[in-house]
Design a protein around this nucleic acid. Structure first.
Length: 473
RNA sequence: GCGAAAUUGGAGAAGCGGUUAACUCACUUGGCUGUGAACCAAGCAUUCACCGGUUCGAUCCCGGUAUUUCGCCCCA
């Protein structure tokens, strides 16, 4: 037996369904925002990250998987995906002024050498978007609103959006000077990390969580007092626009972000599950003024983006039961009463599959009782029984497992029969507002009954209480 | 990188220096040889993460390794 490499995990079976659901939801939503998919390599040259994420960031300083390949090139497993996306946009010369902006989305694994804990892995998956060629603060709003509504779409309520402005170059230069001056007299009594940060990037001292240091930090100059008029105006436009979109936020002037490329607007999405599970942030992002230029793109081309941690989304959603709408059941389970009927069963199986019914067959020679159990376990809509009598009459027994009704159906009528049965079920579904909740969200019974877990849609076998109430009127 | 705890079948778990490793669920088979429940019966860990040590004897005590979890740090 081989153990998993530390900080890695298998995503399989039901778990994989959840990942697929989350990723597909995000991808489809990104398509609505007119983002295009980018798939960039998992390995990039190490200096790409040193340049973009920044030599002074913890990620570059101690968390990268870096190695020399056989040609003595320094290669790094990407610790994040923004740098690769921007590199790709630049390399492929997608940034002709007339084509601004380039809007990209991505999903894929990232690697950071960290101490694993729940929700933090050494190999983890990120979804994210980038907008390269930003010429208006409202592009930043677009990125934020994408994140906000995407998380809502996944079922998150009570999201907390924290936002801050780090200012443009000039603001930061002034602010940095002020901080340098302020911390100069304190740095000797601060922690080792802070001493290092003081030298490398004084802004990052603000992130320090050590109690004694925080006392010092509390009285440090605030970035808001050093923003240039331009940055102030930019930030204000973003905030006003968020107000108009009805996106609640909280300005957090301690929000700095650990990646060096951010400037002006930065933000994070925070969420705590009903069971109390929470991570630093489910998603985060911001604006970058110089990144594109530094990677070799047009000098004054700006961008913004955000990333979400899929592992964290999945784990918080599990905690809050937000996966109840995943249907992993099959349509038909075919049960030959003896092994000699397996060829007939296979023919019918093939017929069903080619007609779009998700189907499975029992070929293990089990008892009928065992096969029924298996059908239930597979969450099958129909059990199809084939035995001697059925072969003689060229028919099959169709048992609807949700209402126990069964009929003998001629094979030639089978597809039509199943279609009509499933249509009837669907119709039942459609009477339930669940399938229409893009619009009148509030009127949906499912949401109303969330707490009691009495969603009619998910428990059709049980009492359709909420549906009945609706229909009864 | 630092500090702490945990690890017992497929799952949840009790146990204790001494040979039946409890219980529950799941699963398999039969009672019921063509219909899902319930019930009954039987089966299901030569083994307690791994490697060493102490001991007449270790799942239990000690040391090491691995992984996980918690806190710090950082981040998605």
């Amino acid at each position: 037996m081989f153990n998993l490499v530390k900080g890695t995990h298998d995503i399989i079976l039901n778990e994989a369904d959840k990942y697929t659901y989350v990723e597909q939801t995000l991808i489809q939503f990104a398509e609505f925002y007119n983002f295009k998919e980018f798939r960039t390599p998992i390995i990039e040259s190490s200096d790409l990250f040193q340049r973009s994420v920044g030599d002074s960031s913890d990620i570059v300083r101690k968390e990268m998987y870096t190695f020399l390949d056989k040609g003595d090139r320094s290669i790094t497993l990407r610790p994040e995906i923004t740098a690769g996306i921007i590199r790709s946009i630049v390399n492929n010369k997608l940034l002709a002024l007339g084509d601004y902006p380039v809007k990209a989305y991505y999903v894929g694994p990232c690697f950071r050498y960290e101490r694993p804990q729940q929700g933090r892995y050494r190999q983890f998956n990120q979804f994210g978007i980038e907008i390269a060629g930003v010429t208006s603060p409202y592009r930043d709003v677009e990125a934020i609103s994408f994140g906000y509504f995407a998380l809502k779409l996944l079922g998150f309520e009570n999201l907390k959006l924290k936002i801050n402005s780090l200012g443009d170059d000039e603001s930061r230069k002034n602010y940095r000077e002020a901080l340098n001056k302020y911390f100069a007299s304190y740095v000797d009594q601060m922690c080792d990390d802070c001493k290092e940060r003081y030298k490398l990037n004084v802004l990052r001292i603000l992130d320090c969580k050590i109690k004694e240091d925080q006392e010092i930090i509390k009285n440090a100059p605030k970035i808001s007092d050093y923003l240039t008029d331009k940055s102030k105006d930019y930030f204000q436009k973003v905030l006003n626009s968020l107000d108009e979109l009805g996106i609640e936020y909280e300005i957090d002037d301690g929000l700095v972000r650990g990646l060096d490329y951010y400037s002006d607007v930065v933000f994070e999405f925070h969420y705590t599950s009903s069971k109390g599970l929470s991570y630093g942030a489910l998603g985060a992002g911001g604006h970058y003024n110089k990144l594109i230029g530094e990677i070799g793109g047009p000098k004054d081309c700006e961008g913004c983006g955000l990333a979400m941690g899929i592992e964290r989304l999945v784990s918080v959603m599990e905690d809050d039961g937000l996966f109840s709408n995943i249907d992993d059941g099959i349509d038909c389970y075919i049960m030959p009463l003896s092994q000699e009927f397996q060829p007939n069963a296979l023919n019918i199986l093939s017929l069903l599959r080619l007609n779009g019914f998700k189907s499975e067959v029992s070929l293990e020679g089990k008892s009928l009782k065992a096969m029924f159990k298996k059908a239930l376990k597979l969450n099958a809509k129909f059990a199809l029984i084939i035995g001697e009598d059925e072969i003689k009459t060229n028919s099959i027994i169709c048992k609807n497992l949700s209402n126990q009704e069964q009929e003998s159906i001629l094979i030639e009528d089978l597809v039509r029969y199943l279609d009509s049965q499933i249509d009837a079920e669907e119709e039942h579904h459609h009477e339930c507002c669940c399938h229409d909740h893009n619009e009148s969200d509030k009127d949906c019974c499912c949401h109303a009954h969330d707490d009691e877990g009495k969603h009619c849609c998910h428990n059709q076998n049980e009492d359709h209480e909420c549906c009945r109430e609706k229909k009864g009127n």
